[in-house]
Each structure stands twice: as C-alpha cells, then as structure tokens.
C-alpha cells in the first residue's frame, strides 16, 4: 500500500470552501422559503459538513444525552424564573428520520390531527446537484411569542422558565393563536382517535375492542393527567389548541424532552440557556447557529445549526 500518497488535494480544499458556502446558503434559502442559491460549479464530492468540533459533542465516555440530563437536573435546582429552556437542532446531523415526531406523538398521546414536531424534508437543486434538508419544527418557545397576546381568555402565556404553555382548562378553542403563530406550531385537537376508521365492534375473532384501549390512559402534559372524552361536553384537551410543551412533565421529574432523548441523529440538544456551562448555551452561541424566520420578530429559543 502506498503510504505517502497525499489524500488531500488542493482541489478538494477548494471544493470544501465552495461547499461550506453552500451549506450556509442552504439555510438562508430555507428560511426565506426561497430557492437554493446554488454554487454553479458544484463538485462531485459533496461533503457539505465542515469540521467544527465542539466541546462535549463526542466525549467517548458519555452519551451527550447523559451530559444533558445532568445539566437539566442542575437547572432544576434553580428557582423557576432563573432557568430559560432552550433547544438547539443540528441540521447537519438531522437525518430526517421523524423519530422525534413520532416520539412526541406517542409520549404525549397526541391524537390524529395534532402534531408538535413535524420534520420537513425539502429537496433542493437540480439533478445531479441535489440535496435534501431536514427541518424539525417544535414550538420555538419564543421570547416574544406571537401566539399569546391574541388569546381572548389568557389561556396561553409564557411561563417563567420560558415555556409557552396552554391551560387546557381555560382555552375555549377559538384557534386564534393558531393563526398567529408564524411557525404553525399550534394544532387543534378535534377529538379523534387513531382507530376511528377501523372496523368497530366487540372482541370476537378479532381484537376490535381491546386493541383500541391503549388510547384511553391519560396523558401527562404539564404534569397533570388529561383523560380524553368527546361528546356534547368534551373533556380537555379535546376541543383545545395544543402545542409542544418542551415536555414540561418530563423536565419536572428530571428527564429530557422526548424528542431530545429519542433523536436518532443526536441532533437535538436541550438545556438551560441561562447556564453558560450547559451544552445548549455553548451550541446556541456558535457561529453557525441561526433561528427560524428571525424576521417574524418572535425571538425563538430554538436554534438551528447549519
């Protein structure tokens, strides 16, 4: 084997530079929902991921989840108004697997029609210079949320720890807040069940009844138990608007949000932005950290690394 063969050619350096530009252009384009501004001479070698190691990312002795859970526990010791929860999503690592989407649905027992964290898969470019970007979209837990002032009954507000919450017992289901969110992060609970269109009946040769029961146990949002029942007077959260809670119920017991712990690409980071030593603070402060639709003026607490 030829040992002294150079494996980095000047061209490949140049390519890297071009691709580096592409990477940021990609996100700019994405934020404007515009078309990708593409490098004309896109080289065949696409490694659009510049080396930007950061502390704590690949510590061989600890999964980053453990580090973050430790930090979370530390944050929980502080009074609520001294924490500021934030999230960082590394789009370079996001594989578009939608595990976070489904994890969130299952964790919060979301019914059909309600989703807190869809992942947008967007194709850009022209064959053969094409790429796909994956954009998971939780609630941005905005510093200046557009969704809260519109609520006629004050059912939704920004909590002291930065989480924008909805009190299902107060919400009247007017859906004004849904229209106000620039990220479409709020959805309405129509009171459906996943098995609504499947054959109905008693258990016999088929498990028509017993295999539906899993939808009945209450969910734990906001650390309470919410039982579903529809009908003339629905029970919360049926008939309410719903949104990502940053898994407040899990934070309370010292656990990371579901979409963080289940992230297949380890692309989602979470913690207290007020803690300068927390991994999220470090990541949110990196040069490649951006926010979605900054022009909306909502100052998200969710950052994207591009």
């Amino acid at each position: 084997m030829n040992k002294d063969r150079p494996d980095r050619t000047p061209e490949s350096e140049e390519r890297r530079a071009v691709l580096g530009k592409m990477a940021s252009a990609t996100f700019a384009g994405l934020m404007l929902s515009g078309v990708l501004a593409r490098a004309q001479d896109a080289a065949p070698q696409k490694t659009p991921i510049p080396a930007r190691p950061f502390k704590g990312s690949s510590d061989a002795n600890q999964d980053v989840l453990i580090r973050m859970q430790g930090e979370l526990e530390r944050a929980m010791q502080k009074p609520i108004n001294e924490r500021r929860w934030g999230m960082v999503i590394d789009m370079r690592k996001c594989t578009g697997c939608a595990s976070c989407t489904v994890g969130c649905v299952m964790e919060n027992k979301l019914p059909p029609g309600v989703v807190y964290r869809p992942v947008i898969d967007e194709e850009k470019g022209t064959y053969p210079n094409v790429t796909r970007t994956f954009l998971p979209r939780p609630c941005m837990q905005c510093e200046t949320p557009a969704c809260t002032p519109v609520c006629p009954v004050g059912a939704t507000w920004k909590g002291a720890d930065g989480i924008v919450v909805i009190d299902y017992d107060v919400c009247i289901g007017c859906r004004y807040c849904i229209t106000a969110c620039p990220y479409q992060a709020r959805t309405f609970d129509f009171g459906q069940h996943w098995t609504d269109n499947a054959a109905k009946g008693e258990d016999g040769a088929l498990a028509l009844k017993s295999a539906r029961a899993y939808q009945d146990p209450p969910n734990f949002e906001y650390g309470k138990e919410w039982k579903r029942r529809e009908g003339i007077i629905p029970k919360s959260p049926v008939g309410n608007t719903r949104k990502c809670t940053f898994c407040a119920h899990r934070l309370k017991v010292g656990m990371l949000p579901m979409c963080v712990s289940t992230c297949v690409g380890r692309a989602t980071f979470f913690g207290d932005l007020n803690d300068p030593k927390a991994l999220v603070s470090e990541l949110a402060g990196m040069a490649n950290a951006t926010q979605l639709k900054p022009e909306a003026g909502t100052h998200p607490n969710v950052y994207y690394l591009v």
Binding site: C97, G103, M255, S261, T262, C263
Partner: peptide, 9 residues
Amino acid sequence: AKVDGHLCP
C-alpha cells in the same frame, strides 16, 4: 428508570 435511550420512529 429515568434515562431513556433513543429509538427510530
């Protein structure tokens, strides 16, 4: 008990 690992969708 409070440590969850990841899983695909």
